[in-house]
Design a protein around this nucleic acid. Sequence first.
DNA 1: ACCTGAACACCGTTCAAGT
DNA 2: ACCTGAACACCGTTCAAGT
Lengths: 238, 238
Amino acid sequence: MTKRQRSIQRREEALSRDSIIEASIALLDRGGEDGLTFRALSEQLATGPGAIYWHIANKSDLLTAACDALILRTMNQIATTTPEKTIRAVALALFDVNEAHPWVGSAITSTPGASPVVHILERIGQQIRALKVPAGHQWAAVDTLVAFILGVCRQNAANCDLARARNLDRAHFLEAVSTAWSQLDETEYPFTRSVAGRMRNHDDRADFLAGIDLILAGIPSLKPRSRPQLKHSASSVR
Amino acid sequence: MTKRQRSIQRREEALSRDSIIEASIALLDRGGEDGLTFRALSEQLATGPGAIYWHIANKSDLLTAACDALILRTMNQIATTTPEKTIRAVALALFDVNEAHPWVGSAITSTPGASPVVHILERIGQQIRALKVPAGHQWAAVDTLVAFILGVCRQNAANCDLARARNLDRAHFLEAVSTAWSQLDETEYPFTRSVAGRMRNHDDRADFLAGIDLILAGIPSLKPRSRPQLKHSASSVR
DNA sequence: ACCTGAACACCGTTCAAGT
DNA sequence: ACCTGAACACCGTTCAAGT
């Protein structure tokens, strides 16, 4: 029985890195990071779990590759116009990939220095250069923007994971957070309470863009000449 | 034999949520998120893995609790002075906890809306209010700052994890990234190549503070009156 | 060269049974 | 009420054996 069954559902094409990555993306989209399993993957590809290791090094490699495929696709769709506009476009595009594939934000931050991050750094870095930010401050501007973008993506990805874990959709999850916040102690948590209502129906995407604009608004402060650097930040703590 | 051994190394005090959390922090500090295991934990506490479940709900609960313990301790050490100074102090304190306990950045972003994040939101939110940012823009300012802070912490935590996985210390890890970046294609990755050298010995903490200052520098742009809101960000994409 | 799938060394979590 | 520890249902990864 096993023999016939196997020969029937055997894949026709040979395994390849690309087909493995595509199947991984599908699994990740359906079940998040936990949904990507060597057993589920090998079943989908009609092979054994060991076969996958011929094409990829390990799970972390696989996750990075899946992430990079999406990031690369996304970056290539963005037209370069004015620096500010391009930065906003890159940021929004990343925000949107992460909404469509809510594991990207988590995967990308797990592989610092690797390919996906580099593609983003480069794209934004070129725009910061075009803005004529002095060489000594370019890194600060790029680092800040990228940390913010990845920070938001990561948070949204975490929201999705948590919602999934509790079998809630996003709206119900946000509502639960909102209610919890509005029940906090009034004297100890005045601010959080005051924004609890806003949580319920707020527009993540608009908030995100407001953050990008806020950072962009600060960039001119880097321009005229280097601001007096504060002494206490001159050397690392470790 | 098992009987004597057990009665010898039996703990004297009863298990408690707090003692479990302390032991968890120690394990996390030594081995990162992977280092926290119910088996390792129960061994350290001289009990069985099942006993822990009497005091905590699950691993995620445990991680959040360990994180919250540290965040709370940290926040209570910060004196409130001027709004800008306090925001910088909060940010730097969080940066430093994350350096000392490099799993915090990861744990905190995994539990959106939960206690650790709320403590940070609240503390920063109160300062943004003190800065007289208009009510309608307070959330944007706080959200941006917190997303940036958590983004950086998460990146640093990921750096540590990756370095640990490769049995490198932080310096060697950064050097590896730096060399990899400097070998990128010159025409396709001009910016990343140009910052590769800076990676090698750069000061994370100063860069972080520069990012905070950059965002703070943008905050006055929220003040005079609401800037014309861009139409394309008016409603969510999903 | 590429694939198979059983086996290994782990996980988090549960639960009958004890005190 | 609190603890025990074996057992369950998973993981990622390896590797002898096949084609």
